[in-house]
C-alpha cells in the first residue's frame, strides 16, 4: 500500500518536473542495484545465524560468563543474532534473572543494536571500510564504558532491577 502510494507520488513529481526524471531514476537504480547485489547474501547470513544460534545458547553462555570473557562473549553474541532490538529485551531480562552482569547485558544489547554482522556488511557496502571500521571500534570501546557506568549507577541505589 505504502509502496504503491510512494510510487505514485514519485511518478507525479517527476511528471511535473520532467527535468528531474533522469536524476531521480538514475539515483534510485544505483541504490537498487547496490542493494540487490548484497541483500540476498545478507538475508542468508541472518537466516543461518537465527537457526544455528538459538536463544538458549546465548542465555546459557552469557548467563555465567564473567570478567573480560564476559565482555567479549557479550560482543560476540550481540553481533551474531538478528532481528530488531526489542527482540533482545526479553532475553536480557532472562539473563539478568540468571545473574549475568549488568555491564555485559548493556554491551550485549548495544552490540545487538548497532554492530550486528549482517548489518555491518550493508554498512561496508554503502559507507566503505574506513567508516565501518572506525564506527565499529569506537562503538565497542564506548559501549564497554557505558556498560560499567550503567552497572555502577544501578548498583549505587539498590542494585535490583524492577519489572
Amino acid at each position: 500500500m505504502l509502496l504503491a502510494g510512494m510510487f505514485i507520488v514519485a511518478l507525479i513529481l517527476v511528471s511535473i518536473y520532467p527535468d528531474r526524471r533522469g536524476a531521480v531514476f538514475n539515483t534510485s537504480m544505483d541504490y537498487l542495484t547496490e542493494m540487490a547485489f548484497i541483500l540476498p547474501a545478507v538475508m542468508v547470513l541472518m537466516g543461518l545465524f537465527s537457526v544455528y544460534i538459538p536463544e538458549e545458547t546465548v542465555v546459557k553462555h552469557l548467563g555465567k560468563a564473567s570478567g573480560s570473557k564476559g565482555f567479549f562473549l557479550a560482543i560476540l553474541f550481540g553481533t551474531l543474532p538478528t532481528g530488531p532490538l526489542y527482540v533482545a529485551f526479553p532475553m536480557a531480562s532472562t539473563l539478568i534473572k540468571k545473574g549475568a552482569r549488568i555491564s555485559n547485558i548493556v554491551v550485549f544489547l548495544s552490540a545487538w543494536a548497532c554492530i550486528k554482522i549482517p548489518q555491518e556488511m550493508v554498512e561496508l557496502q554503502f559507507l566503505g571500510p574506513e567508516f565501518m571500521l572506525a564506527r565499529l571500534s569506537l562503538t565497542i570501546i564506548f559501549v564497554g564504558l557505558m556498560g560499567f557506568v550503567i552497572e555502577w549507577m544501578m548498583k549505587r541505589t539498590n542494585g535490583v532491577i524492577d519489572g
Partner: peptide, 26 residues
C-alpha cells in the same frame, strides 16, 4: 527463513530507495 525475510523487507527497501531518489533528485 532468509527468503521469507527478504520478501518481508523488500517493500520497505523499495520505499526508501524511492525516497532517496526523490531526495537526491529534488
Amino acid at each position: 527463513k532468509a527468503a521469507k525475510s527478504l520478501f518481508g523487507i523488500l517493500p520497505t527497501i523499495l520505499i526508501i530507495i524511492i525516497i532517496i531518489g526523490l531526495m537526491l533528485g529534488f
